[in-house]
Design a protein around this nucleic acid. Structure first.
Length: 880
RNA sequence: GGGGCUAUAGCUCAGGGGGAGAGCGCUUGACUCACAUUCAAGAGGCCACUGGUUCGAUCCCAGUUAGCCCCACCA
């Protein structure tokens, strides 16, 4: 027998570190690759190696660990594959910031040295992140850990790139892209965050080249007028019919540009005439294509004006804007400036205002890849939980546009394309030695790297060894559930589905579980700039991982954001302590027994009641977990453990444990306590892995670890409805007597007498069986059950439970007037209940259409309320 | 301009076609031999508003109001 003397307060810090090491040493997390067993797999959303884990990660990983631990206990061959993400731009920015502290830029180091520095950074932060995951208690298979830039994943990236290129789905070309002047790179559309901003709409007069008159255009970005190559109007706009085909003279630049007609123009907006700058606006670019307009690039990649901008060359774009406006005013062509609300794009990583630029970049053609990914979701092969996210996904995928994948940074997968002097481009998995077209050897590899999400998209299969045909890939692909926040459905989830279908010809997972954000106590997003972030590690150090996990999971409803509040942490901590102390009680009362076999024959009503409740809890928890309602599942266990097991059963168990005549009676209770505690710990283990293991090891058990103990299932042998009913009566009477006692402030030290007058044999039986319990729990000295009461005691408090009249004779303590008042209040309540039930029963529609069971229940209720009403009424009369 | 979510006890939130739930807070009592990180008892809600469907709506549907979020190239 292990040590039974537990400290009265649970101390997680002592337990968690030790248990996690033990689990690691014994390889409990390792997936066995047992071909005979069914698999259950999850790939971790790889955390970025930029910093440390936040509450969102803690929630995300807690959810995954819960799913994984349950399936492992259910006997599945379970793999939770961990790893980290190189996070291209984000990590590069961090390292650059670090260098900046020493007054250095990445150019000072050069590409090779800089990347070395980033690898060092990666190593350092990788260690930190893994350490944090350890502390959370996640049961990942660390022997299979991956990194998006490790050799295998990099190979997968090249393989995919080459395949898509040869299929014509990757191409390179000149298009308007989102350019971040700060990060100095192109971005994809979804890396741009739009924010409404108060801007201005500037009206400028462009004079006609021939003859009198002018055209007025309106723009939010006057500085781009330097690059205008046309003015567009709507073809049907009567105001401008005569002007179409003529030319205007572009102010400041004195360039002749044509007036063209295009349907894109909204005659209602501004002046109805639009200046066209193909090099700096996506719409203008499209119009430029349609009308073969030249593009004049006036803003450079660093955000300054180019030589094409004439005298403004070299100015920063914001400075240029001011000067252009001033000069326009000086020339007398500035008509007016009005305020204007519009959305301005910002870089997701550094929040700099995005510049739409004409640039040569690599793209993935998305529509062909999206098609099957739409079908898989539409036909239910891939399911979102909660379901409404299906729409969010489809809405994006059905309107998908090509993906700009090249980034002008250094940290990432370098694009496997080489340019030859002969002008040809070679795309290959391995570096070519000579040009296959001209045989030349002067090949230069593309400088750009890939969008970090390119490698993420391959994660479910690249981590299992693809493109090699590994045993893991064969056995573990596809995975089962993907757990993530709604913020990366587009970035990651959609693209994984695309790539999984394209390269594995199988969906990467069948279920996408979407959770919400963890916000601060005021409901604000946790962010560094606000300084309102709560570090999960601090909570773990102070309260333990179990407490943090329980707080996060109970605070969570599928797909909804939650607030992280101290009260909730306290509550979870208290719960852990409650479990600890309940277990202390069990351990202290185990006697010499080492095993607990339930002997169903010798059970009392209390035992049967607990087993029944336990069994219901198991069924409910399984149902909830099957539908991913993990917060509800956790609350259900909480409720059972605290209310049923602790508040009622442990108190009831004390009776035989302390007073029983025979050892056999004690033994029965011990076995029930042990059995239910054991199984409830198993049920709770996925949620609170540490404390459950720690206690489980101390109570009688078979097996090495609770991690591999069998998962509790509903057991028909534990259905005890009759006993459950009887106990419900006993409990209700108990509560009522306690209530009466507190009504007259009867001191706890004073034992009371009670007379119970019953109408039915069933009640008499329940009370007889529950006598000892009632005496203890309601603090009674004497309890008398009668079938008929010759004379009602006057100096007594009264209440009615079902057909049971409860009399609490208290000479000298009962204020008759007060008691009548209280009973009248009770009578009023009962009368309204009777009225409600009878109202229903008198409704012909109800009787005709409601289900029989509901009608029967309603009849029983009505009967019960009438009975109680009459008894209370009688009592009032007798007191008068 | 589209799409979505939310409105339940003082606070934070679960729930769900047939008499409203939790935690915290509040009131009253108790250091009772597992636990005061506790126990017992209690107060507190026309479940946002208006219609509809139904025998029956807090729950389903429509609309209204308020708040939040996502997507979108009207200069």
């Amino acid at each position: 027998m292990t040590d039974k003397n537990l400290a009265p307060v649970y101390d997680p810090s002592e337990v968690e570190e030790r248990l996690y090491q033990e689990w690691l040493e014994k390889d409990y997390f390792q997936a066995p690759r047992d071909l005979k067993r069914k698999t259950f797999n999850i790939v971790i959303p790889p955390p970025n190696v930029t910093g440390s884990l936040h509450m969102g990660h803690a929630l995300d990983n807690t959810i995954q660990d819960i799913l994984i631990r349950r399936k492992r206990m259910e006997g599945f061959d379970t793999l939770w594959l961990p790893g980290t993400d190189h996070a291209g731009i984000a990590t590069q920015i961090k390292v650059e910031e670090h260098l900046a502290a020493d007054g250095l830029t990445r150019y000072d180091l050069g590409r090779e040295k800089f990347i070395e520095r980033v690898w060092q950074w990666k190593d350092e932060y990788h260690e930190r992140i893994i350490g944090q995951l350890y502390k959370l208690g996640v049961s990942c298979d660390w022997s299979r850990e991956r990194f998006t830039m490790d050799e295998g994943c990099s190979d997968a990236v090249r393989q995919v790139f080459v395949a898509l290129y040869h299929k014509g789905l990757i191409y390179r070309g000149n298009y308007i892209i989102n350019w971040c002047p700060r990060c100095h790179t192109a971005l994809s559309d979804i890396e741009v965050e739009h924010e409404d901003a108060e801007g201005t709409l500037t009206y400028i007069r462009y004079p006609l080249v021939d003859g009198e008159g002018h055209v007025v255009v309106a723009t939010t970005r006057p500085e781009t007028m330097l690059g205008d190559t046309a003015v567009a109007v709507h073809p049907q706009d009567s105001r401008y019919q005569a002007l179409i085909g003529k030319e205007v003279l572009l102010p400041l630049m004195n360039r002749k540009i044509p007036i063209i007609a295009d349907d894109y123009v909204d005659p209602e907006f501004g002046s109805g005439a639009v200046k066209i700058t193909p090099a700096h606006d996506p719409n203008d670019f499209a119009i430029g294509e349609r009308h073969q307009l030249p593009s004049v690039v006036v803003i450079a990649e660093d955000g300054t004006m180019t030589q094409e901008a004439g005298k403004y060359a070299g100015l920063d774009r914001t400075e240029a804007r001011k000067q252009v406006v001033d000069d326009l005013e000086a020339e007398g062509v500035l008509l007016q400036i009005e305020k204007h609300q519009h959305a301005v794009g910002h870089c997701q990583r550094c929040h700099t205002v995005i510049e739409p630029l004409l640039s040569k970049q690599w793209f993935v053609s998305m529509k062909p890849l999206a098609e099957p990914a739409i079908q898989q979701v539409k036909n239910g092969e891939i399911r979102f939980v909660p379901e409404r996210f299906t729409k969010v996904y489809l809405n994006w995928v059905e309107n998908i546009r090509d993906w700009c994948i090249s980034r002008q940074i250094w940290w990432g997968h370098r694009i496997p394309a080489w340019y030859c002097e002969c002008g040809k481009t070679i795309v290959a998995r391995e570096e070519p030695q000579t040009c296959p077209h001209c045989g030349g050897q002067a090949l230069k590899q593309e400088e750009d790297v890939l969008d970090t999400w390119f490698s993420s998209a391959l994660w479910p299969f690249s981590t299992l060894g693809w493109p090699e045909e590994t045993a893991d890939l064969e056995h573990y692909y596809p995975t089962d559930v993907l757990v993530t926040g709604y913020d990366i459905i587009y970035f990651w989830v959609a693209r994984m589905i695309f790539m999984g279908l394209e390269f594995m010809h199988k969906k990467p997972f069948h279920t996408v579980y979407i959770h919400g954000l963890v916000r601060d106590a005021q409901g604000r997003k946790m962010s560094k700039s606000l300084g309102n972030g709560i570090d999960p590690l601090e909570i773990i150090e102070q309260y333990g991982a179990d407490t943090l996990r329980f707080t996060l999971i109970t605070g969570q409803a599928p797909g909804h954001d939650q607030r992280f509040r101290q009260e909730s942490v306290d509550n979870s901590r208290n719960f852990a302590n409650k479990i600890w102390n309940a277990s202390r009680f069990v351990l202290m009362n185990l006697g010499d027994t080492t095993a607990a076999e339930l002997e169903l024959d010798s059970l009392t009503d209390a035992d049967r009641w607990l087993l029944h409740r336990y069994n219901q809890t198991v069924r409910e928890v399984n149902r909830l977990m099957d539908t991913y309602e993990l917060g509800e599942a956790a609350r259900t266990i909480y409720e059972f453990l605290w209310s049923d097991f602790c508040d009622w059963y442990i108190e009831l168990a004390k009776i035989p444990l302390y007073d029983a005549q025979t050892e056999a009676e004690k033994q029965t209770v011990r076995s029930v306590l042990t059995y239910v505690l054991d199984r409830t710990l198993r049920l709770l283990h996925p949620f609170m892995p540490f404390i459950t293991e720690e206690i489980w090891q101390k109570i009688p058990h078979s097996g090495k670890t609770i991690m591999l103990a069998s998962w509790p299932e509903y057991d028909p042998a534990l259905e005890f409805s009759a006993a459950h009913e009887r106990m419900a009566t006993v409990m209700e009477v108990t509560r009522t007597i306690r209530y009466l006692r507190s009504e007259v402030q009867l001191p706890p030290g004073r034992k009371a007498q009670v007379i119970l007058n019953v109408d039915s044999g069933a009640s008499a039986q329940a009370l007889a069986a529950g006598e000892a319990m009632l005496k203890k729990l309601a603090n009674l000295e004497e309890m008398t059950v009668v079938r008929e009461l010759p004379e009602q005691p006057q100096q007594a408090l009264t209440a009615v439970v079902g057909d049971i009249e409860i009399y609490l004779p208290l000479k000298g303590l009962v204020d008759i007037e007060q008691e009548i008042k209280r009973l009248q209040k009770e009578l009023k309540k009962l009368e309204s209940e009777v009225a409600r039930a009878e109202g229903k029963l008198n409704n012909q529609g109800f009787l005709a259409k409601a289900p029989q069971q509901v009608i029967a229940e309603e009849r029983a209720k009505a009967e019960n309320y009438r009975l109680r009403r009459d008894k209370v009424r009688e009592r009032i009369i007798s007191l008068r």
